[in-house]
């Protein structure tokens, strides 16, 4: 099945931007696009072929240039402004690109598969609310808290989830997100312990804060560094450090304010 440069550009930019958005590693994005292009006879780098493709991706943007041997190459740039982790869709997109490499289907089939992936269900709000509470409560126990600490950590995690839904509507930066989250956690935990409901607030704060830990950014960053994508690695490393600093700043300022009162 032959496809034109324009169609290839449209498919690869769609798949690539979705992969970045749902939290795939950057080297996986570039690799998938090169493989899809190679299935239709477009090769990257200095292969010496007429039909060429070049991809450059970082977590904030994706640039693809396709040349089908004519004089004018085609370029598309996609800016990725918001990202949400959805490893299920990354898995399905990965399967799709493997399928494209083997079967070489036409564009209509590929677009149908992509729309199917976009419609895959994500966990609804109640399930995610419970998962936040479970994470908070079990980590409060894990770090040596009492069952009472776990109860409050679970409740506070639920509040953080509710707050984060509202805060995410204005699309804040990762730093701001983690500051808000940890201010909420620390101030409620301090109020609860000052009211005499629990002994100390430290296990509550640790447990509930685990919901904000940048786990996926750190793993992606390490895997990008190994693959040689240093720019993408630095980007995600900065993001992970900023999130951790934001958590510390938020909790520290909340505790300092309550200590003064």
């Amino acid at each position: 099945m032959e496809i034109t440069a324009k169609e290839l550009l449209q498919i690869t930019s769609r798949i690539g931007s979705m992969l970045i958005e749902y939290g795939a590693e950057i080297y996986r994005v570039e690799d998938s696009i090169y493989r899809i292009a190679a299935a239709y006879g477009f090769y990257g780098g200095t292969s010496g072929k007429d039909k060429k493709i070049e991809v450059f991706a970082i977590p904030a943007s994706l640039i693809i240039t396709v040349n089908d041997g004519s004089e004018v190459p085609l370029t598309q740039t996609v800016r990725i402004s918001s990202r949400e982790t959805n490893l299920d869709r990354v898995d399905k997109l990965n399967n799709l690109s493997r399928f494209i490499c083997v079967e070489k289907p036409d564009t209509a089939t590929i677009n149908k598969h992509i729309s199917e992936i976009c419609e895959r269900k994500i966990y609804n709000y109640p399930v995610r609310l419970i998962s936040y509470a479970v994470v908070g409560a079990t980590f409060a126990l894990f770090f040596g808290g009492t069952p009472f600490d776990a109860l409050f950590a679970g409740l506070i995690s639920m509040i953080v989830f509710a707050v984060s839904i509202f805060v995410n509507k204005v699309k804040p930066s990762v730093f701001f997100q983690s500051v808000i989250g940890s201010v909420v956690i620390a101030s409620i935990a301090v109020i609860v312990s000052k009211a005499g409901l629990t002994g100390s607030f430290d296990k509550i704060i640790i447990g509930a804060s685990m919901n904000l830990v940048p786990g996926i950014t750190l793993t992606n960053c390490m895997r990008d560094f190994i693959a040689g994508d240093f720019l993408a690695g630095m980007y995600t490393l900065t993001e992970a450090i900023l999130t951790a600093v934001g958590m510390a700043v938020g909790a520290a300022s909340a505790i300092a304010v309550f200590n003064m009162i």
Partner: peptide, 20 residues
Amino acid sequence: LPCIYSLIASIAFGVQFNIR
């Protein structure tokens, strides 16, 4: 106990990352 806690907590984390 820590092993059981990490099992439960990581399954809950799986929900946050939308793992089937």
